[in-house]
């Protein structure tokens, strides 16, 4: 029996727009994954704790506030410190092109902006999470 993929979808930071996060949560659910949705205004610590308790394979972060260069490294470090370095992190929201190389260098596996196709995102996530 193949294991069901479990993904945490979280919205760190203070902006209150979770439409995108909900669309992605829904798309991943429709792709057969178990999606744990945490809601708005999660701190990096809260996200790491949820990822640990839920034993997820991946974490999707939605950030529209522009704080991604602060928040993403804190989530990645937190995961590492918690022994969750195998958990893949992907990112959605408003991310300027010039930040993309640095974020990927830090370990983000995929970055999706407005207008990204939800089927493609789901397929990408599945491939990333079943790789190893």
């Amino acid at each position: 029996m193949s294991k069901r993929l479990r993904i945490l979808i979280a919205k760190p930071g203070l902006d209150g727009h979770d439409r995108g996060a909900k669309v992605i949560a829904r798309a991943l659910r429709d792709a057969g994954m178990e999606v744990i949705y945490t809601g708005l205004r999660q701190t990096p610590e809260m996200i790491v704790e949820s990822a640990l308790q839920e034993d997820v394979d991946g974490v999707g972060l939605s950030i529209l506030s522009g704080a991604h260069m602060t928040l993403v490294p804190r989530v990645l470090n937190g995961l590492r410190e918690a022994g969750l370095e195998h958990v893949k992190v992907f990112l959605g929201g408003i991310i300027p092109d010039e930040d993309v190389p640095r974020l990927k260098e830090l370990g983000v596996v995929g970055i999706f902006g407005p207008g990204a196709n939800t089927h493609e995102i789901a397929e990408f996530v599945r491939q990333q999470l079943t790789e190893d």
Binding site: R4, E34, G39
Partner: peptide, 21 residues
């Protein structure tokens, strides 16, 4: 779980954020 795809949206943590940490 969805009977069709087997996927699920688990949203109960949204209301349990006070318990974090």
């Amino acid at each position: 779980s969805s009977p069709f795809t087997g996927g699920a949206l688990l949203g109960d943590r949204v209301r349990m954020r006070d318990l974090s940490g």
